[in-house]
Design a protein around this nucleic acid. Structure first.
Length: 949
RNA sequence: GGGGCGGUGGCGGAAUGGCAGACGCAUCGGUCUUAAAAACCGAAGGGCUAAGCCCGUGUGGGUUCGAAUCCCACCCGCCCUACCA
């Protein structure tokens, strides 16, 4: 009875053996090329999830592959151990966050060991260890020294129930509620610490050219950084609305990406929180403005959310002066302008900005087009009864070749709709109108031109004043026009016009003073030059990216090493006093407020500068701070533990860092695209500027794995009851089978649903590999040359293909090809080839290629065949180009692109011979009967396509 | 609204200009067994009685000797982002 495959016995045995042998101990070796392979560090939530396996085991396999290729591979691991869940547990169950976290880490370490990964546990780092966060705090001080850390007021998400600010990732759902208690968050102004990530905005953009990261991540980061070029333009509040202010106090700076539309700025909008609002609001508007500001603040509680929400706003009563044409423009406030972007104030150009257009129509504000339409289209309407003699007018139109149609609006009757295609046509049409219009009547020309043609001549919509003049005349002339407040609103009342009234394209400037006529491709730069020459504005760049807010009002994080002294102001903790340690005797309040705030021993401190009584900063740092530099900490974790450190230290051993850094390959989930992955890039650039590293990017290559889903194709969650527990699976199938199954499920970057029956096939595969080595075959007779060659071909093709697959992280097809080799070897087991060289080569290759995927099984079998050094330190097999070659190919013959025959042919068949064979094939001949051969295409010696007519 | 990813047998998926469905799951038939399971062997996209032929990669068009693959338009699903001036 042959021995059974027993992973439950094999796997723990080898894990212990490898550890005893120091197989994965990190050895710096300048003689060997290094490879730093990193997987995003886990949060110690307590229990290992199959998602952890899905993220970690393929990266382990890839790291093992690099190792077998001869690289000195560094594959470290650690724990992202600060964060809110530990504090929640402390509040709920009374366990101290430190104890809770360490217990979880212990548990996870045990579970992680069952994966059989080659982690460098000798370099493990835990971010909540004081010897780790000593350096996190050191980085804070260094950033502060560089001017990259500053304290400022900011509106932050605040949970009124828990009484604490929340990180952005702790605000959940569309209604933006608190992760912990479900209460909707509000915005609150607090004095907070920031890092100047924006200082590196351009470099963060440019650096993406130099790294081999997924385009998806690069796109997300590009959008997140949101660079936009334009101009800052200074408007001024009209002096009569700020009578007692000194010069310059009424300046209202706006950022715009469309300075070429400046002449069309017919009003301004400030964010409700804008500091100028209070000062400029007139007495008459005070009540409305105050009500709106209050409501806007309350709105942010339930979120200004719903985007299809209709625009709201209030007039402040004040006017500003448009610096390009001196026009008085009303200043409004509205919540569609955000205080956090640009300057918190905009110039509104309703003719060429959709939001402003909507707002202007709603509130009856002037709309003045200043950019010509790209198409030449214009439209006109001549209302029924506005010409003296309709028959004559129609005849004149027809004589002039001007197209028209009769259209109708329900309550206003019939009209001529006249599409106008060219300037000449518009001129002719205008002349016709002047000749035929009844006194007191008019017709419009809109689109390419913006005119109302009255019986005494056209008026052009080219300014706010003209707008008022036109609409007043129309209102006076016709009862139905009284409902309209602006010319554009009147035109908007005719549905037939609507598709030509608005556009946001670049085009020739019109109604723009001396810049009128400037073509669209030069309009922006010409306007900026014009503004700069007059000191009214300048080119400017704006970013959506904001500075990184790192203050957290809670206990379980690295304390910010700062002190507030009533005499000296903000004073940094001296480097030599680091770490600022979290007090252990903290009391966790059910309100969720940070115990540090109430911890007298922690808070009360002497000022390092003057020695007087001072207060320690009680906020702690965002946990993304820890993960921004952990890949450097891994080099020599807890460097200089117990020692005093200074500003000129390096947080890791310099020589070892020079060898291992930077990270060659990083793997992790896409969810960190715009958070962790931007922060760590920012950190590395700052570190370069501190002189710590001489490279610009922390990770050369990045790969994002997908997510493993439940059997129901939904995200795994306890409430759905579709969670797959890895520990049970290890018990049942062994780690190797789980690993191989996760690899096999589909492309790693896509993820996919778990299938509890699918794993059986992989389990059989492992069993079969076992049997190939352990069971005796029945060799009989002498193997033929062809059999030998066929098996060698299968082996070497597999080596070639699996190498390419693993290189590209295509583990699913790698496993499939190894299964195919298994099938081949199984078939060969009962042939004379069993036990011969080709057989041994096949089995050994299978074990070597499978070693990164199923480390325990392959080690056990390798040792049975070749007692000695581990399979994991063997050379990755190489394929022989000769052995890979096919002797025969199946020549596919098509007639007009349809397969009509297949012929076995020698592999190196030349074109002429292939053509001849193809034409001779009987079924092909049938399809050629009575047809003329027009063309014969021979593709790659594999396929012949005969084109017949 | 903007950006991205995807749509191929009953299922997970292969194939990125040249034989569609590799590999596996499930299914069906057979061997073994009193029987079942396991294991092993074999079949299998749909249709037609068929050597063979027709139809088949979300839909419709196009490019090409040849398209799952490239181009255009559309439909559906998922993810990210969202009044960014």
């Amino acid at each position: 009875m042959p021995e059974k495959y027993n992973p439950q016995e094999i796997e723990p045995r080898w894990q212990q053996q490898w550890e005893a042998d120091g197989l994965y101990a990190t050895v710096e070796d300048p003689g060997r090329e290094k490879f730093y392979f990193l997987t995003m560090l886990p949060y110690p939530s307590g229990d290992l999830h199959i998602g952890h396996w899905y993220a970690m085991t393929p990266s382990d396999a890839a790291a093992r592959y690099r190792r077998m290729q001869g690289y000195n591979v560094f594959f470290p691991i650690g724990f992202d151990a600060f964060g809110l869940p530990a504090e929640n547990a402390a509040i709920k169950m009374g366990a101290h966050p430190y104890k809770w976290t360490l217990a979880n880490i212990d548990r996870m370490r045990r579970q992680m060991r069952s994966m059989g990964a080659m982690w460098a546990w000798d370099h493990e780092a835990v971010t909540c260890d004081p010897e780790f966060y000593k350096w996190t705090q050191w980085f804070f001080l260094k950033l502060y020294d560089l001017g990259l850390a500053y304290k400022a007021f900011a509106a932050v998400d605040f949970c009124p129930h828990c009484n604490t600010t929340l990180a952005r990732e702790q605000v959940w759902g569309d209604d933006r509620h608190c992760e912990r208690c479900g209460t909707p968050v509000i915005k609150k102004d607090l004095y907070q610490w920031f890092f100047r990530t924006t200082q590196y905005a351009d470099e963060l953009l440019a650096g993406m050219e130099t790294i081999d990261w997924p385009e998806r991540v690069k796109t997300m980061q590009t959008n997140w950084i949101g660079r936009s070029e334009g101009a800052e333009v200074t408007f001024t509040v009209a002096p009569e609305y700020l009578p007692d202010s000194e010069a310059g106090a009424g300046d209202l700076v706006v950022f715009t990406t469309r300075p070429d539309t400046l002449w069309g700025a017919t009003f301004m909008v400030l964010a409700p929180e804008h500091p100028l609002v209070d000062r400029i609001t007139t007495a008459g508007q005070r009540a409305d403005v105050d009500a709106y500001v209050n409501q806007a603040t309350r709105m942010s509680e339930i979120q200004r959310g719903a985007l299809d929400k209709e625009k709201t706003g209030v007039f402040t009563g004040a006017y500003a002066i448009n610096p390009v044409n001196g026009a008085y423009v009303p200043i409004w406030i509205a919540d569609y302008v955000l205080m956090t972007y640009g300057t918190g104030a905009i110039m509104a150009v309703p003719a060429h900005d959709e939001r402003d257009f909507e707002f202007a129509l709603k509130f009856g504000l002037s709309i003045v087009p200043v950019i010509e339409r790209m198409d030449e289209r214009a439209k006109s309407v001549v209302w029924d009864g506005s010409v003296q003699d309709e028959a004559a007018f129609i005849a004149a139109l027809q004589a002039a070749g001007i197209d028209f149609r009769f259209l109708e609006i329900a309550d206003r009757g019939r009209f001529f709709g006249v599409p106008l295609e060219s300037d000449a046509e518009m001129d002719t049409f205008t002349a016709l109108l002047l000749a035929h219009l009844k006194p007191g009547h008019w017709a419009d020309i809109v689109g390419r031109r913006w005119q109302v043609v009255f019986d005494d001549g056209p008026m052009t919509l080219d300014s706010i004043i003209a707008d008022q003049a036109i609409i007043n005349r129309c209102r006076a002339g016709y009862e139905l026009m009284r409902q309209y407040r602006t010319t554009m609103e009147m035109w908007q009342g005719t549905p037939w016009y609507r598709d030509v009234l608005f556009h946001h394209d670049y085009g020739v400037m019109i109604n723009s003073g001396e810049l009128s006529g400037t073509p669209g491709d030069r309009a922006v730069s010409a306007t900026i030059d014009w503004l700069e020459a007059r000191g009214r504005g300048h080119a400017a760049v704006n970013y959506k990216l904001r500075d990184w807010l790192i203050s957290r009002q809670r206990y379980w994080g690295a304390p910010i090493p700062m002190i507030a002294c009533p005499t000296c102001g903000i004073v940094p903790v001296p480097y030599g006093d680091l770490p600022v340690v979290l007090p252990e005797d903290a009391e966790f309040l059910p309100t969720g407020e940070s115990p540090l705030k109430f911890h007298e021993g922690f808070r009360n401190v002497k000022c390092p500068q003057c020695g007087g009584d001072a207060e320690r900063e009680t906020d702690t740092m965002d946990t993304f701070m820890c993960s921004s530099w952990y890949q450097y900490a891994y080099v020599t974790p807890y460097y200089k533990a117990g020692q005093t450190i200074g500003p000129d230290d390096t947080p890791w051993d310099k020589a070892q860092g020079d060898y291992w850094l930077p990270v060659d390959q990083y793997t992790g989930g896409i969810e960190h695209a715009t958070m962790h992955l931007i922060y760590t890039r920012f950190f590395t650039k700052a570190m370069r500027d501190m002189g710590l590293v001489n490279f610009d990017e922390p990770m050369k290559r990045l790969f994002n794995q997908g997510m493993i889903l439940g059997e129901d194709n939904e995200k795994m969650s306890k409430s759905r009851g579709n969670v797959v527990a890895p520990d049970d699976l290890v018990q049942r199938y062994g780690a190797d089978t789980i690993r191989a199954y996760l690899f096999f499920i589909g492309p790693w970057e896509l993820g996919g649903p778990w299938n509890s029956r699918g794993i059986e096939g992989v389990s059989r595969f492992m069993q079969d590999v076992w049997n190939l080595v352990v069971d005796d075959g029945q060799p009989a007779g002498e193997p033929g040359q062809k059999e030998t060659r066929d098996l060698r071909r299968a082996t070497h093709q597999t080596i070639r293909d699996v190498t390419a697959d693993v290189e590209a992280f295509k583990f699913n097809t790698a496993v499939a090809k190894l299964m195919a080799l298994r099938n081949t070897l199984k078939a060969a087991r009962s042939t004379p080839i069993y036990g011969r060289d080709a057989w041994n080569e096949g089995v050994d290759s299978l074990l070597l290629l499978l070693a990164p995927i199923a480390p325990h099984l392959t080690e056990e079998l390798w040792q049975r065949r070749h007692p000695g050094p581990s399979v994991h330190v063997q050379r990755w097999p190489r394929w022989d180009d000769e052995a890979v070659k096919e002797d025969v190919v199946t020549l596919v013959v098509q007639v007009n692109g349809k397969v009509r025959g297949k012929i076995e042919a020698p592999a190196n068949i030349d074109e002429a011979a292939a053509r001849e064979l193809a034409l001779a094939e009987p079924n092909v001949q049938r399809h050629l009967e009575d047809k003329v051969i027009r063309k014969v295409i021979v593709a790659g010696g594999k396929l012949v396509n005969i084109v017949v007519g």
